[in-house]
Design a protein around this nucleic acid. Sequence first.
DNA 1: CAGTGGTCTAGACCACGAT
DNA 2: TCGTGGTCTAGACCACTGG
Lengths: 263, 263
Amino acid sequence: MKADSKKGPNGVSAPLVVAKAIDKSSRMPAYAQMADILRSSISQGEYPPGARLPAESALAKAYGVSAMTARQAVSVLEEEGLVRRVQGSGTYVRKVGVAASNFGLEALGGILADRDNLQVRIVKAAVKKTPGVEKEVLGLKPNEPVIVVERVISHRNEPFTLHISYTSFDPTSPTVESMLDTVVLTGLIFQEGYSKFKRGALRLMPALLDAREAGLLKLPEGAPVFKLEHLFYDFDNRPTAFGWFLVSHEKMPLLSKVGVWDE
Amino acid sequence: MKADSKKGPNGVSAPLVVAKAIDKSSRMPAYAQMADILRSSISQGEYPPGARLPAESALAKAYGVSAMTARQAVSVLEEEGLVRRVQGSGTYVRKVGVAASNFGLEALGGILADRDNLQVRIVKAAVKKTPGVEKEVLGLKPNEPVIVVERVISHRNEPFTLHISYTSFDPTSPTVESMLDTVVLTGLIFQEGYSKFKRGALRLMPALLDAREAGLLKLPEGAPVFKLEHLFYDFDNRPTAFGWFLVSHEKMPLLSKVGVWDE
DNA sequence: CAGTGGTCTAGACCACGAT
DNA sequence: TCGTGGTCTAGACCACTGG
């Protein structure tokens, strides 16, 4: 028996009741209208968490669209994390929970992209020759030199983040590139021009500000902040840019929403 | 002139050179094979960051598939964050940078789902009648009571997280549900059965452990940890479950990868 | 074995961008 | 105006789930 069919008093399968029709003359695509309707149905409890949605073929017929269009509508909800597709079984409404959350760093990107209001101050630039973990990460020998650069990046004249970076000191590359590694990290921090990096790994951690860091960021010593560690690889797969950003959670809020929010 | 065409010595447009052909007898879908090929091309620098990919129609012709299939292949790369589609213009390779990163809480979900190895110990359960921010968040009057419950959730007998929760004290709901709010938070913490929540908002922050918290989690006092704040709404749109998890970043690493990693 | 989601075709037309 | 991505159709067949 079709699980999504509704039975009349006499037990005969009735057609799927459609909450709202598609306006094909609208500029809004049919799949988007359909996704809105389905989302609304979920929101109103018609399809509670765990429930199975009608089959895509049934939805297509009910809304008078092709199967591909109905599929696209369901895909919208799937990408929103609202439903889960199981091949051969059906499409199910996801349960809302903490684990579904996802935190993006658009806020950071937005600020770093607002270059007109950014000020970058280099507070340290040195060649380090003593061993350290950064050399392991960059695949260097303990005695090979690395360039360490520390920058305070301010936004609208307020300190926003402290960036510590380690890059390999490659005597064969042009001096302008290696000396203060401005080119490499311009590509990392600002998303302009051609990036030199093929891929990167990031780790987000909580951290405390020591006295010096706190002074540079004009925050209290011992304040909890985000530490965003990064390791970027160039197109030769060599680890190239290791370092981290220290940034207050108030200046970079990490927010996430789960479930249905559009009403 | 087609921007993606390559010119021969005599200046005549040559067909797009295909790196590898699609094996239509393979069990791997054509779009997935095509996505792999394109990803590999990007990885090897054939399409550097900022470059425009060949038009979807050109790709379809070059690989001998329909336009919809080529489109699906490009969609894979788009969902991976590798390319950006611009209507009317083209599809461009994204530059790799810190802002592209995205942190999911699958690690948290994985541990909370492993119920056989979980122990939950309630370390506090009380009805609070004095005012507090939690009442504003839950939309209660300052004198309305809330239930506060604190739990230590251990995994394999090691403290994993401390959960503080505030829920409204609703005398009309069944006692079993409201008393220790076990049902509500069973749905929140464990993703089993039918969820009572329609949606939730979450905020991730860095925090320090005070002496009591540190003792409960067997961590040093003052250690930096993640604070994952949550506010969940029921299907009547009432804020219902406010609280937060304190969890060590070592037990819940937040990792993210950007760019091309599959080689 | 019936029903479900997953893939695929060979077209069509539209909205938008750059020219 | 032309090339691009975006939407859509009306079919087809396949892979998988579950009774």
